[in-house]
């Protein structure tokens, strides 16, 4: 889908605000109900962006990490009053099981949030933001990122050519293969260093460093961005105030309290969900507009 549509049309700084807030609340709020609802909200966002395709391709490692955290925590941590059972003489406590599950839901939510980050915050947008803070480091990152596909093609070429000399990573003992792999990378390195010297001199010749670097302003901060940023700040403010007053987390140690949500918890949950789902409004609005423009009435 095009870059100027719905969520994708937002200014990078608004997207940064969205992700910074989403990550921060995903770490600050510590209640399985809140975190799993946040996860569901992130899933809805993903569903709107690409039908959840990207999320599905990451779901297996995410599930692995989720299960591993749930299993590992009770084995490492034995704090808590309520012992469920003894494994040999190791006590498995209800508290550490619940803590592990809460940790795992926090991680799951964060990882799911990052899936939509990868779709929305393209490298272009990230470097646009990064260049405001650190122009030279951003230029460096941009150059390195631009080289990667080219070096990858070169490496493929090298692998093909060197195969005729018997240098291949697909056959032989492990040591032999590792040695051959490093020789390929070494050839790639000297090839690229030689070649990059020309790039550098070309940059120099075109006047690199003679003045302040100009940049191509690809993004405009429009009214849509101002509204979204305002809404995000408001929701974050409410969620944050409730958090500061002690809502939005579950007391697990020393004894697990009830899962039921207090009024403050419900408020924090609502603000958190509004924060995560609000930018979707633009997605809906643009879809409606698109439909009414294309199918009439």
């Amino acid at each position: 889908m095009s870059e100027g549509f719905g969520l994708r049309s937002l200014h990078p700084s608004v997207l940064l605000l969205y992700y910074a807030g989403g990550i921060t609340f995903g770490m600050l709020l510590f209640h399985p109900v809140l975190l799993l609802s946040g996860w569901a909200a992130c899933l809805i966002v993903n569903g709107h962006l690409d039908g959840g395709r990207e999320w599905r391709s990451w779901s297996l490692p995410m599930l692995g990490a989720f299960v591993a955290l749930i299993l590992v925590n009770p084995l490492i941590s034995h704090r808590g009053r309520t012992v469920l059972y003894y494994m040999g003489d190791i006590p498995i406590t209800l508290e550490s099981v619940v803590y592990g599950a809460t940790m795992a839901s926090s991680l799951l939510g964060l990882l799911t949030l990052f899936v939509s980050y990868r779709i929305l915050m393209t490298e272009h947008k990230f470097l646009f933001l990064f260049a405001r803070f650190s122009p030279k480091a951003a230029l460096l990152a941009m150059m390195a990122a631009g080289m990667v596909p080219r070096l990858r093609r070169r490496l493929k070429e090298l692998m093909l050519v060197q195969k005729t000399r018997g240098i291949a990573v697909s056959e032989g003992t492990v040591t032999q293969r590792a040695r051959n792999g490093a020789r390929l990378v070494g050839a790639l390195l000297s090839w690229s260093l030689e070649d990059a010297l020309q790039t550098a001199d070309s940059m120099q010749a075109r006047g690199y460093g003679t003045g302040t670097r100009s940049s191509y302003p690809a993004f405009r901060f429009g009214p849509r961005d101002a509204w979204t940023a305002g809404g995000l700040f408001a929701a974050a403010g409410i969620a944050f105030t409730l958090w500061a007053n002690g809502h939005g987390y579950l007391t697990i140690y020393p004894r697990l309290e009830s899962f039921s949500l207090s009024k403050g918890d419900v408020g924090a949950l609502a603000a958190y969900l509004v924060f995560l789902l609000m930018p979707l409004g633009w997605e809906w609005r643009d879809r409606t507009t698109w439909r009414s423009l294309n199918f009439g009435k």
């Binding site: 460096l140 080289m147 990667v148 790639l188 010297l197």
Partner: peptide
């Protein structure tokens, strides 16, 4: 920063990546 320094660092990072 000279262009050559930036390019050299970028090449090393790109080679490490691939």
């Amino acid at each position: 920063r000279q262009a050559r320094e930036l390019v050299l660092i970028a090449v090393m990072a790109a080679v490490a990546t691939v």
